[in-house]
Design a protein around this nucleic acid. Structure first.
Ligand SMILES: [Mn+2]
Ligand SMILES: [Mn+2]
Ligand SMILES: [Zn+2]
Ligand SMILES: [Zn+2]
Lengths: 141, 141
DNA sequence: GCGATAAATGCAACTATTTGCAATTGCTAA
DNA sequence: TTAGCAATTGCAAATAGTTGCATTTATCGC
């Protein structure tokens, strides 16, 4: 992640939040992550350094980091939500409901739709890292 | 719903499933529903006629009805999944993350995207009744 | 009908996630 | 400093939904 701790602290404070030790540990765990991670992954990683951490704090902090745009949160249908650093290559996912396979979808593929929603509905879709469910090539009847 | 009980029974049997009293009650509850209903709504409705019904059976049956295309299932961000009869007017939803407002989106608005996914990724998006999150007109910074 | 087999059920236990709350911590201003 | 106040925490309890399993029910070939 390119952002310094100070940057993140500023982002938080701008919204009336504070930087705390717990949040710093979560931030570090997120920082070291690659690709999709679950709340449980982050919990395990943080607990190694800060055993008193609670799951509530993990969840609350991940929500916070999403709010300030540092991570994205998405349900890819695997029973647990996946988090993803927002500064990694932006993309969405095609999730096959039969085989569970996941294919990356370039961010720009959704641009025309976002554009249409903006124009016709005055709606600003702000979801990064979306999941679109369906059937992949191999799994079509 | 236009489908007769016999139709649904046939759909189930085609997949190796059976028609049971419990499923008939769930079917009736779905039949009488309008718009979005939760599993709990269906549970309450069925329990009035069939007190022994269990939540597992409700969830399992709703999944089944989705599998045979009678209902759609979607998470509109309200903490519980919403079910919707598939024979009501097809549409998707724009869900505002700030005010919680929900706007209907005509089915055809997503056609170009489905088309592109089919062509470029060989992916058949089969999701009816999608939720797209973002900010509505009133809630844009 | 009868037994074998497969499907479906209810229940209890479990999962991931959220929430209420009392205790703790950290800013701020006197 | 220190009091006051707001933000944050951990914990325990609650939520929606899923799953394993023993029991019940339906189907099918004899
Ligand atoms: Mn991803
Ligand atoms: Mn709807
Ligand atoms: Zn597939
Ligand atoms: Zn709004």
């Amino acid at each position: 992640m390119d952002r310094s701790l100070a940057d993140t602290t500023r982002s938080l404070e701008k919204l009336g939040y504070r930087m705390t030790p717990q949040r710093m540990f979560v931030l570090r765990a997120v920082d070291e992550s690659r690709g999709h991670v679950s709340a449980d992954d982050i919990f395990a990683s943080v607990r190694a350094q800060f055993p008193r951490i609670s799951f509530s704090t993990i969840y609350r902090t991940l929500d916070l980091l999403q709010e300030i745009g540092l991570i994205t949160k998405s349900d890819l249908g695997a029973g647990r939500v996946q988090y993803h650093r927002a500064d990694e290559a932006h993309h969405h996912h095609l999730v096959c409901q039969r085989c569970g396979g996941i294919v990356d979808l370039d961010e720009q593929e959704l641009e025309p739709l976002w554009e249409a929603l903006r124009k016709r509905y005055n709606f600003k879709a702000c979801e990064r890292h979306m999941a679109i469910f369906g059937n992949c090539r191999q799994c079509q009847s």
